[in-house]
Nucleic acid binder design. Structure first.
Lengths: 122, 122, 122, 122
DNA sequence: GTGGTCTAGACCACC
DNA sequence: GTGGTCTAGACCACA
């Protein structure tokens, strides 16, 4: 048995940036915080922030103008959505479905919980 | 910002035992593996196994007969289900719902994925 | 005008490993030196060696068995050849062709130089 | 192992001047830009430009009339061609040939790539 | 032993 | 100011 659920910090940061992009916090082609700003903001080593940005750049979500900073890529929202969805289906959903069956939860129950959730954060 | 760390191992073990109880691997009032057996089986320090059992005992899922061993409590299935459900709703579902909204995923989409999942592990 | 021709060390190391794979120094599925061995051998920081290996792993040229080491991937030779060829055509050939024209060198001249080269290292 | 570093800037500039001479941008005995003009043009420290010119003068490609400026030497084209060709054969071709063999590329393949190149920049 | 991540601090080129 | 790379040394999980 394995006892590990350890996402590296740089991946968590990358995830955070994806969320912000999906929420529209920055438009496409807009500049995002510099590596150092982000590092200070998240209380993290600049190298770790760089790694997160490099990770996103490799996936075409952000790009770099030398000496200027990082920018949200052209189709970043769509790209991000695709990648996140794939990861969600691969990593998260199996556990959710397994738990649903284990608890014998009805789908209607899930739906009503979802509606509750939407009421709180509409 | 706070970053996720590993869940304590003893909690992961407790979770595993809950699953087994829910699956009916052991009936109520049935004896479960000794601390040492479990520790060997999961390749874990015995103290860690002890903590897991203590955790479950506090919640009324198992009980101890001194000198004999641990047993599944009466109504353990129901108790476990309640606790797990509460934890599921509190800890896991918010993230799932948040991601669903972030990805703009339709509920129908989720349901069809669930059906796919059920086909694989019916 | 730009004055830079600076390939990062980790990229040079990755290149070196590609050469070795193409030369058949290791067969596919064969274990390659550990990160630390390589680092000592090349007199480089282990982190730099790790970066090189991570770079190659992302491109499907090598893969990792946890706690054991890195191994040459299944179709590594073919993969490597494709990637190297693309890079060669994109990065190196333009300069070569430009120089050929600048010097007014005949293609036959190039061919005879190639034959000379082959005689030395057949 | 030794890793590649940047070529000195003054050498890159010397190379650039050679190209211009070979392209016939300046005829023999013609005046070329002053050190200061060149330095401004390339956004470089004047001392760097001086070193480039000194380098070319040593090789008989340009010469200096004190108080007037630098001029393309008699037979500069031929001299330049010889030197560049020697350097090309010594420094660049071995790598090209080595890569060709490593990739198992056919010479015909190279030639057709060259023809493609010529079509783009005839 | 293996790889992987993080921090700290340095240096570099580019703008 | 920007990002990028490298080194050094630490800690971790896994085998």
């Amino acid at each position: 048995m394995e006892f590990l659920k350890n996402d590296a910090i740089y991946l968590q940061i990358a995830d955070l940036m994806c969320e912000r992009i999906l929420r529209g916090e920055w438009g496409e082609e807009e500049r995002i915080p510099s590596v150092r700003e982000l590092a200070v903001d998240l209380e993290v080593n600049p190298n770790t922030a760089i790694r997160a940005y490099a990770y996103l750049q490799e996936r075409g979500i952000i790009y770099n103008k030398r000496g200027i900073g990082y920018f949200v890529a052209e189709n970043a929202v769509q790209t991000t959505r695709s990648l996140m969805k794939a990861a969600f289906i691969r990593n998260d959903l199996p556990h959710v479905f397994k738990t649903l069956r284990l608890l014998g939860m009805d789908l209607n129950e899930l739906l009503s919980l979802y509606r509750e959730h939407l009421e709180k954060k509409p």
